[in-house]
Amino acid sequence: MKIIVTGSLGNISKPLTEILVKNGHEVTVISSKAEKKNAIAALGAKAAIGSFEDIKFLTETFKGADAVYVMEANDVSQFFNPEFDAIAYNIQIAKNYKEAIAASGVEKVIHLSCIGGHTDKGVGLVALHHGAETALNELPANVQIKFMRPVGFYYNLLQFIPAIKGHGMIFANYGGDEKEPMAAVQDIADTIAEEFDKPFTGRTVQYIASDEVSMKDVAKEIGKAIGIPDMPWVQVPDQDFYNTLLGFGMSPQGAHAFTELNTARRTGLMYEDYINHKPQLGKVKIADYAKEFAAIYNHQ
């Protein structure tokens, strides 16, 4: 099968490409950086250098493909720009994909969405995924789409390294004893790769999760791995968290998007649809990821 992968050599796209190539597929990886060509070739894939803002480029790249994997990517630096609207920007990228898919004739699509993609109300930054799904759902009925909704990524825990090193704790405006689903990149890539080899039928939604664990237990597992066995997870008020993000230089709308996202985790709004469609959990548990976290932590 000829498959187009967006996302360059990102956290999911790289292992996904490796698996697809290993499974015998002919893979083309889209990247905006020409210097990634050699690294993409080293994986056994072809590189297509261009921008997902360029509909003509996307259309030409998609032509002749049996299936495409599309995703929207956020550059953290953009959240420090008060004039940048991450939600609107990423929804526009999804609209670009929609136009390119329609024009190229591709009929099999896998879209990387996210937990919370069932709504655009009260979920902060995640609203972009609902908007992206809505845009892609406007494609003709002959285009079959699998919307993949992974839950919170383990690697997002890396953002807490400065707080751990500075204060010996993790703090956020969510957490506690309630279990939440989390996912490993490898489990996400494995699941998506498997879906390319399964039948495509209409429009489907699938959640991806590796473990369900409380944030207090997350702190304990990570703490054990880095030598702080009693490390606490401290839940702070929304306003305090918002002000902290502003203090880091984040734009007001960026700080609001992340604060509201975390609030939706705390209230359970983020997990309303997930609860009714729970997937089989993957292989990588939080204790496994804690070792990876520790390796990164100890080299920073």
Rank of each mutant, 00 (worst) to 15 (best):
T28F: 04
E60Q: 03
T61F: 06
E60M: 01
T59A: 03
T59H: 06
E60T: 04
I55T: 08
F52A: 06
A47C: 14
A39Y: 14
L58E: 00
S51I: 07
K33M: 07
K37Y: 14
K36L: 07
I40K: 13
G50R: 09
E53R: 03
T59C: 01
E53P: 03
A39D: 13
E35M: 07
K36P: 05
A47Q: 14
L58Q: 00
E35F: 12
F57S: 04
V29Q: 06
F52I: 11
A41C: 08
K36R: 11
S31D: 02
V29K: 06
L43N: 15
F57I: 07
K33W: 11
I55C: 01
A34S: 13
T59L: 02
N38T: 15
S32G: 09
K33S: 10
A45P: 12
S51A: 09
F57Q: 05
F52D: 05
T59F: 06
K36G: 07
A41W: 11
V29G: 04
A34L: 12
A39I: 09
D54T: 03
I30C: 03
K46A: 14
T61W: 06
A39W: 12
G50V: 11
I55Y: 02
A42G: 13
E60W: 03
A34M: 08
T61P: 04
A45H: 15
I55H: 02
I30Y: 04
F52L: 09
V27L: 10
I49P: 03
A45E: 13
N38K: 15
K56G: 04
S31C: 05
D54H: 03
T59S: 07
A34E: 12
S31Q: 02
A41Y: 15
K33D: 10
L58W: 00
E53G: 06
V29R: 06
L58V: 00
K33N: 09
A39R: 11
S51E: 05
S31Y: 07
A45C: 15
I55E: 02
T28G: 01
K46C: 10
I55M: 00
K36N: 11
K33V: 10
A47T: 15
L58I: 01
S32Q: 04
A42I: 14
V27D: 06
S51R: 05
S31F: 04
S32H: 09
A39K: 13
I30A: 00
V27I: 12
A42V: 12
G50C: 10
G50L: 10
L43S: 15
K46T: 15
L58A: 00
S31L: 02
T28P: 00
A34C: 11
A45S: 14
K33T: 12
F57G: 02
V27W: 13
G50D: 06
K56V: 07
A45K: 14
F57E: 04
K33P: 04
E60Y: 04
G44S: 10
V29N: 04
A47Y: 14
E35S: 10
S51H: 09
L58Y: 00
S32W: 07
N38C: 09
V27H: 07
E53K: 05
I30R: 01
A39E: 14
K56Q: 05
A48P: 09
T59D: 01
T61D: 00
